[in-house]
Design a protein around this nucleic acid. Structure first.
Length: 444
DNA sequence: GGTGCCGGGGT
DNA sequence: ACCCCGGCACC
């Protein structure tokens, strides 16, 4: 099944056999959605809880928005409709129609069928499309994927914006952009002219990407995700072309979609289709704006490569990474003299020539590193004078000129292996001496 | 010129 | 990681 999914659904099959997403989608489409709780219910236990899926070795059950579930509330079991399933907390947000209120329950506390009525067929109580597993087709698989992605926070997908990858090429940018567009772009003027289902199909690749990412986040980045989810306000945005209406309740949004977009006669046929036409949006308390920025599609690269954002980042990254790399450089050889010299030399260092002021950060980081004093060789001087000024900053930062404020290690007073053993007993030298490195045996 | 050793290349 | 060596600074 996984194979089918991987090959059929995902254009770029990146899901390995053990891919969590593969497993989830698999379950979502075949068990989680079409056959939740009804499959493998061989022990005949009534009042199946969603969590019982773990009995089948499935640890994550996907409850999709609109799915009918049962929970205990006010001392009795009440039917409700899933609004949101938070995989991270394993918490389900449920709307209880009877009480007209929203509740949050742990997944374990959610029933997929009423506990009353022991012989109640599980599958009959579950509000699922009446289709067999064999009839799982593209639509259903895609639906599973879309629903899965809908139920997860778009914030999860947006971290890319936080740390733009300078090396990302056009392809990457495009993919990410379409992703962002999917989540939050205003459909008022930038929506595709295609009909919504087509639009949905068009988006599928991006959903794939997003899904991939968010699964990674969900499974491997839980703390961060949880932290974020708790601090955001949830709203729902209508994805219908030229609509973009935002409502705070999922029920209201569904009603909006049904009445305004789907129409009454389509209501039956598209029982759950309204799920496809809205998306959750999150408003962070700290950043009161829609998570994924929503630039005009005409200038997609503007967001990422805008000089204001990534550029300041670069120096800071450099200034953070450069020292460590310098440290690494200077300590990479185990035979080298230990750091005592370091503190001494740090104090001796002087700033780099003013010519390099644009690269202040690079030099500052470099300053911290040098261990020794070193004068400029003719060749180096020439390089510095001729090629350096015309060298683009990023190249310079990649391979900065040797810092000539550096100190070359003062020649030690101690005798070295060469002197002690003589060149004829080279095999008795310490390794460092043999390699023409700083003597390890006779430290200064 | 001898020596120490850094930076870099090869495996 | 290990090994080698060109090249430079210092003596």
């Amino acid at each position: 099944m996984e194979k089918v999914l991987t090959v059929t659904v995902l254009p770029r099959s990146r899901l390995g056999k053990r891919s969590p997403l593969g497993a989830l989608v698999c379950n979502s489409s075949a068990e989680g959605l079409a056959d939740v709780g009804g499959h493998g219910d061989t022990d005949g236990a009534p009042g199946i809880r969603a969590g019982v899926h773990s009995v089948h070795g499935v640890h994550k059950v996907k409850l999709y928005p609109g799915q009918r579930v049962y929970v205990y509330c006010g001392g009795q079991e009440r039917p409700g409709v899933v609004e949101q399933h938070n995989h991270v907390d394993n918490e389900v947000s449920i709307f209880l129609q009877q009480l007209n209120q929203h509740v949050h329950r742990k997944l374990e506390d959610v029933w997929l069928s009423p506990s009353a009525g022991a012989a109640h067929s599980v599958s009959s109580s579950i509000d699922v499309p009446k289709r067999s597993v064999e009839s799982v087709d593209m639509d259903e698989i895609m639906a599973a994927m879309v629903l899965t992605s809908l139920s997860c926070s778009p914030m999860i997908q947006s971290p890319v914006h936080g740390e733009p990858n300078p090396a990302s090429n056009g392809m990457d940018t495009t993919a990410e952009m379409s992703d962002g567009g999917y989540w939050s772009c205003d459909h008022g003027n930038s929506s595709p002219a295609a009909s919504p289902p087509d639009a949905e199909a068009d988006r599928t690749p991006s959903v794939d990407d997003g899904l991939d990412m968010e699964m990674d986040q969900m499974l491997f980045d839980e703390p961060a995700t949880r932290k974020r989810k708790n601090s955001v306000k949830v709203a729902y945005r209508c994805l219908w072309p030229n609509c973009g209406k935002i409502l705070t309740t999922i029920v209201g949004m569904k009603r909006h979609i049904r009445t305004l977009h789907l129409g009454q006669n389509e209501q039956e046929r598209c029982q759950r289709e309204e799920d496809f036409y809205y998306t959750e949006i999150y408003q962070d308390a700290e950043h009161p704006s829609v998570p994924t920025s929503c630039g005009s599609p005409s200038s997609p690269s503007h967001q990422r490569s805008s000089p204001s954002t990534p550029e300041p980042l670069q120096p800071s990254l450099l200034s953070q990474s450069a020292p460590s790399s310098s440290w690494q450089v200077h300590s990479e050889h185990s035979y080298q003299a230990p750091p005592p010299v370091v503190t001494q030399c740090k104090a001796v260092c002087v700033p780099a020539p003013p010519r390099w002021t644009p690269l202040v950060t690079t030099h500052q980081s470099k300053q911290a590193a040098p261990f020794r004093r070193r004068s400029v060789s003719v060749g180096e001087q020439w390089l510095q004078n001729n090629s350096a000024p015309s060298r683009p900053p990023h190249l310079a930062s990649v391979s900065p000129p040797r810092s000539h404020c550096a100190t070359r290690r003062v020649r030690g007073e101690a005798k070295k292996c060469r002197k002690v053993y003589g060149i004829e007993h080279r095999d008795q030298w310490c390794t460092a001496c043999r390699w023409k490195k700083a003597c390890q045996r006779f430290l200064d």
